[in-house]
Design a protein around this nucleic acid. Structure first.
Lengths: 344, 344
DNA sequence: TTTGGTACTGAAACCGTTCCCATTGGCGTA
DNA sequence: TACGCCAATGGGAACGGTTTCAGTACCAAA
């Protein structure tokens, strides 16, 4: 009945008293100095720990020397499936390495991002994973300068010299376009949220222009703010569908856009899916169910999250080589939406 | 240029020295005793804090007296949209109250759940939100007994007397069935993952039997393990479709099942959606896009997460009334999948 | 003048742990 | 025997804050 004594958790001193040893020895029982302990000491301590159900207070231990074991993560939109899967991958990797992940959602709010960053620093996190819009350069630069290991996910921030993990955008876009070309599409339109200096979007647009040119495809880019006003998208897509002589296809720059495009096509009439091809970056669970099945270029999202943690870990362990960049390849899943381009 | 001096963060002592006051006064500057400080003292401290960019170390301050401001959350499956939305709601509410949320994903692994619980306790969380399978009663009971405020989400755990927030299952099921009945369906099948003692599933099944009986609908329940073997589901649903004389409809017990059912129907042929009605508990972003549009009963997921935090908060503030139970209503969105039941 | 109260301030103890350093005892060696 | 060394152990300072408590200064009331 260890719980009947004191209402609060047992401390290392309780264990020491119970085992008849010093608190130093109990402290050594956890951590690397454990090998110093004799066999008898070790077993006595073990017994007391079990009897009292002692667990060291990580907060107290981090105060003096020991690390917190906390990794912070700042994401712009937790409801985005990309983010969720990435967080999941990062969480698995953290678990592997003995870290705990503290995730803050900034909801695309820059002020909130600053506040969350402050809070995270207050918890003495050992590393920081960032996947936000990048409007808060100064405070991030300062964190980096103060020696906090950081990793960017999905996009660079100019002026922030740190590791970065993301998709190989050029490869992904090329893969999509060569697939469309093979399927006989001759005109393509990339639909993206406003580029706004976000590097991954820039890269996708740039790769799109280059690659479509190389493949001799007619091409254009539609940059559009999603959100409240669905009509603008309907108009743009509708107009594009109208003036079609060639077999044409849409390339969606990410999962959010894919959803919006499917909604637009669906509003424009059920037969819209037959009037144009569609392929999207990001694999979504419902892609096989909609229309003829939506072709996708899947990002290795879980791997991206895991790699972010791995990069962080090497930095925490002391690696000081130049900032590196991990780009992972996308994978094509062809479905009905890009088959049989012989459309009027 | 405060950063050129010392590599590590300024401490309260640095501020005290800089302002020419005692560290006690600086400590008082934060927290409730602030009113004690004279005007001149307050402004001097303020200036030093700004000059040194001092932020109190929350970890250190929590050691003596002050709370950690951390709320822990244990979820069974972070990739489930229900979970994501609930986490998001909880996060907003935490932000409101000045808490930070530490989320651990147990991936439906009971051992992992125990480990995560231990870790969370090690960080001296102030409250715990639980949404897991409930196979780890003992350690949870112990946490509760030790005075940790806890809230269950979506389901009870028999033997764990604490607050609970979830869907009004009876109302949601009744709403779905009365809609189906109004639309002329005469036979309904509830499809659910294995009940396995999970209270929300039990309640949905119970309500289904009662309500279908009351409405004089032919009814049956299909309890099936999803995951790897999709064939079993295809068989079950296929067979059920075959032997149909009445207009019949499927009621999916949650979003995961809805996805599986749509996949099954889609595999069984595109016209399957016309052979039976379908309505699912949980609103999903793609429901309007699949087949004729899938009707849903939306759970107020964000509200559930927010309410969980609110319950926790009242407990943290000292409320000691009997464990309460917050049930929120589901909302019907009728779509094509439950229209025009006049099917052969 | 003494007393008492109020408004403000700081010294020191404390939180639970880790780390530095001193101590002890046993053993091999000169 | 005396010495040095090593393995094992413990005492106490330190970490960065909060809190308790003991002042100090000032002013009104007795």
């Amino acid at each position: 009945m260890p719980s009947s004594r004191s209402p609060s958790r047992p401390t290392i001193i309780d264990v020491a008293r119970d085992a008849g040893v010093s608190k130093t020895s109990v402290s050594r029982y956890f951590g690397t100095e454990r090998t110093l302990l004799s066999e008898s000491m070790r077993s006595r301590i073990e017994a007391s720990i079990a009897r009292l159900e002692f667990r060291p207070d990580r907060i107290a231990s981090s105060l003096r020397g020991r690390k917190t074991g906390l990794i912070g993560m700042l994401v712009a939109d937790l409801r985005n499936p990309y983010t969720v899967a990435m967080v999941h991958g990062a969480e698995l990797a953290c678990r592997e390495r003995g870290y705990a992940l503290v995730v803050f959602n900034t909801d695309n709010d820059d002020a909130l991002e600053r506040r969350h960053l402050d809070i995270l620093k207050g918890y003495s996190i050992e590393g920081l994973i960032i996947n936000t819009r990048g409007q808060n350069l100064a405070p991030l630069q300062q964190s980096l300068a103060s020696g906090l290991p950081m990793v960017l996910v999905d996009r660079h921030m100019p002026g922030l010299e740190c590791d970065m993990v993301g998709l190989d955008n050029a490869q992904a876009v090329a893969l999509a376009l060569s697939h469309l070309s093979e399927q006989g599409f001759q005109h393509v339109m990339l639909v993206t949220e406003p580029v706004a200096g976000i590097s991954s979007r820039e890269e996708r647009v740039a790769a799109f222009d280059v690659e479509a040119g190389r493949l001799c495809l007619g091409h254009q880019v539609l940059e559009i703010e999603l959100g409240d006003n669905a009509e603008r998208l309907d108009c743009a897509v509708g107009a594009w569908l109208e003036r079609g002589e060639h077999p044409r296809a849409l390339l969606s720059a990410n999962g959010v856009v894919t959803l919006a495009l499917c909604q637009a096509l669906s509003r424009l009439g059920a037969q819209s899916f037959e009037r144009a091809g569609l392929i999207g970056i990001d694999e979504l669970e419902w892609c096989s169910l909609v229309g003829p099945g939506i072709s996708t270029i899947a990002q290795p999202v879980e791997a991206i999250g895991a790699q972010a943690v791995e990069r962080l870990w090497t930095r925490i362990e002391g690696a000081t080589d130049a900032p590196c960049q991990v780009v992972l390849e996308g994978e094509l899943t062809p479905r009905g939406s890009t088959m049989a381009a012989v459309r009027p």
